[in-house]
Design a protein around this nucleic acid. Sequence first.
DNA 1: CAGTGGTCTAGACCACCGG
DNA 2: CGGTGGTCTAGACCACTGT
Lengths: 236, 236
Amino acid sequence: MTRTGRGGKMGWRALRSELQARLASGHWGAGGRLPSETELAAEFGVSRATMNRALGALAEDGLIDRRRRAGSRVLPAPRRAARFAIPVVRDEIAATGAAYGYALIAREAGPAPDWLRARMGLGAGAQVLHILCLHSAGSVPFQLEERWISLEALPEAAGEAFRDRGPTEWLIATVPYSEVEMSFLAEGADRAWAGLLGMEAGEPVFTAERTTWWQGRAITHVRLRYRRGYRMTTRY
Amino acid sequence: MTRTGRGGKMGWRALRSELQARLASGHWGAGGRLPSETELAAEFGVSRATMNRALGALAEDGLIDRRRRAGSRVLPAPRRAARFAIPVVRDEIAATGAAYGYALIAREAGPAPDWLRARMGLGAGAQVLHILCLHSAGSVPFQLEERWISLEALPEAAGEAFRDRGPTEWLIATVPYSEVEMSFLAEGADRAWAGLLGMEAGEPVFTAERTTWWQGRAITHVRLRYRRGYRMTTRY
DNA sequence: CAGTGGTCTAGACCACCGG
DNA sequence: CGGTGGTCTAGACCACTGT
């Protein structure tokens, strides 16, 4: 029996690795059934709680499917999920070694356009604060942020100038925990803002859209357009 | 004290929600320190193991930072991570209700180009199988797949025609568990393949790139180019 | 309805690291 | 050094669901 350390019992992380290797080797076949928790626990000489933890981790990783009474089965095609860290742009730029720059370009209150009312579930005539600003790495444009904040849900935004600090950072401090829907897409740079990113109109742009709810109400919607050549990368 | 159910003790999921709500309300302040596991367990009337599980979940979600001796601290800016499910394209199309269509466009073995050898860590003169194929939703192009498979690492690929089944599905069946690096980006449609997706050259395309390793060796690299208007969306 | 996973408990030991 | 989190154990009860 494989063990970690010098003869000690296996921890649940080691167990997970061991079981994962066994899955990869096809030990139980695709779609096959694993022994019960109790049996596996006995085989590896650990308590059922520990084995449960290890198997639970494998299920979270999408490698097996666990159901009461039915047992644990090997998923034929592992349900893959990629985790992308969504860093604050200030940190993302700092990580490249460049100096973070922020510039407010526009800021005005007004009625929400129809598409935004639909997306955020706002009533007719709802007022929003519309902000456009640029985050730079040194003197190079890095990300163009276009944001709408519901003044109904967050009236204190009206008192913020957003001159020295981006709305994202202000929101993080004001509404720390929230529900989020996020999309990634490719779009053509619009004549209206292509120049701000140092791009030609029509050039492909990597864009992230995010709508944020707090206590069931939509607070803000943002479009983040990234500099030419930007990639969002992860390993798993 | 808030409880779930009719007077029963709280489970660790309920505990997590409760603590998350308390975090959201600013109960411990940003950067503040939470009581110890033992204290919290006593306050909620659960065992320390259960409280540990709940706090561990909050740490995994990036809401708090836990360190021995130092205790649990509220993270000032929650380290957010979005999880994107990466479905098999056949399922993704089936989910829209359309019929899945597959067509092999090209398939040829040859030496790996330099950029690919660099990306996959292949030696000089390494042979790869280069495959181009199209996945359609009904009669509409959905995703163009361009893939390279290392014939050194996976010689059995040479015997596969990929005429009825895409290489992704064959790979899943052949190399079920692997390490992956994935990127999302925006690029302009190339003259060489824009037509296959029903697009004009230069039109913005949402592209996913993925390199897959198995037992420390790069197996395959793929570029997935999506139809116009594609979005990758998640909630968290 | 019986076998499986899901969870809780009380106690224990240990690793880590801040003061 | 001592308090904190990390983990394991043995036992227990329960929820779910396939047969």
